[in-house]
């Protein structure tokens, strides 16, 4: 607050304060240089105003020391800013390993959010305070963007791939969730709330909510329903145990990390990467599975054990 006027959104996540400090530093640097330029111009403008028509100015070609000075000083300042900002950015982009995973699907013009316990929400996300939450996000149509100003987090939600972001709320309350990327007619209405609750309130909310199956359970059901089991459960296709996060050897000799992107591609475009030692006999499931179902299958595969090398290296 500044004379009763807000100058920053609420700080409600672990990273918010660090971002604000950098913002204040940049603002101070801005004001300093703006003041220098403005004051110098005003001073010269008055001091050297033309006093008579006959007056001639002293001709000065330039000054190498000055040029060096006003090249080097800004250079040092931007290098400092770059290092500060980038290290903060790198730190902020690594989710803690213990984060709870919530799945997000954006579609024109609503947010669908799925907790691992099976609770599903629309345009509202309930989270407990103090627990790291990792969002795995995709879109059913155009590019959206998950933006919570109070957490200082933002990430595009892109169709056809997974993006992720994480946060750890520090303060209970209800915070704006905006779609940041223009997504068509009702873009401005694609808004929601992130509700941060005390852990015990959250547990109560969770147990009081209507639950579908958990994500892995729903995935397991699909695994049988779509007959994945007939190959992947019998050795005709690669098994899923400890698959997620492992290095997979391909037929063409390359290896690939089994992350969300790879698993998704293998479901929708099975012939894109053939695992070494198996025949390319899998049919595509493109058009048969919804984004939500694909996420459930991923949750199931992840529940069958993940290799130490976490895939979650964004």
């Amino acid at each position: 607050m500044w004379f009763g006027f807000p100058i920053r959104p609420e700080q409600a996540s672990t990273i918010a304060e660090g971002i604000d400090h950098l913002y204040y530093f940049l603002t101070a640097m801005d004001l300093f240089f703006t003041a220098i330029i403005f004051l110098t111009i005003f001073y010269f403008a008055i001091r050297y105003r033309r006093r008579s028509k006959a007056e001639t100015a002293e001709q000065i070609e330039g000054s190498l020391p000055l040029e060096v000075a006003w090249t080097v000083i800004p250079l040092v300042l931007v290098v400092v800013t770059f290092v500060w900002s980038s290290s903060l950015f790198i730190r902020n982009s690594r989710p803690p390993t213990a984060a709870t995973e919530v799945f997000v699907i954006g579609k024109q013009w609503m947010w669908q959010l799925q907790h691992p316990e099976g609770v599903r929400e629309i345009n509202e996300l309930h989270v407990p305070v103090g627990r790291p939450i990792k969002l795995t996000m995709t879109s059913e149509d155009v590019i959206h963007d998950f933006f919570v100003p109070a957490f200082r987090v933002k990430k595009d939600v892109v169709p056809g791939r997974y993006t992720s972001l994480w946060f750890q709320a520090t303060k209970t309350g209800s915070y704006h969730l905006f779609c940041g990327q223009y997504c068509g007619v009702n873009h401005a209405l694609m808004r929601g709330e992130v509700v941060v609750m005390e852990p015990q309130d959250y547990e109560r909310w969770l147990s009081g909510s209507k639950k579908a199956e958990t994500m892995p359970a729903a995935g397991a059901r699909l695994y049988e329903q779509y007959a994945c089991i007939t190959c992947h459960g019998t050795g005709k296709g690669p098994a899923f145990n400890d698959l997620y996060g492992s290095q997979v050897k391909l037929q063409d000799g390359k290896t690939v990390l089994a992350d969300e992107e790879y698993l998704r591609e293998s479901i929708l475009f099975p012939s894109a990467k053939i695992v070494a030692g198996y025949d390319p006999i899998m049919p595509t499931f493109k058009g048969q599975l919804t984004e939500e179902q694909i996420l459930q299958l991923l949750a199931y595969i992840k529940s069958l054990g993940a290799t130490e090398r976490k895939a979650a290296q964004e």
Binding site: I37, F82, L88, D145
Partner: peptide, 21 residues
């Protein structure tokens, strides 16, 4: 000058995440 200096906020990764769009 003001436009250029405020560009630094957006060139800077950590602050751009918040300020983008």
């Amino acid at each position: 000058t003001m436009g250029g200096l405020t560009g630094l906020f957006l060139a800077s990764l950590a602050t751009d995440i918040h300020l983008h769009d």
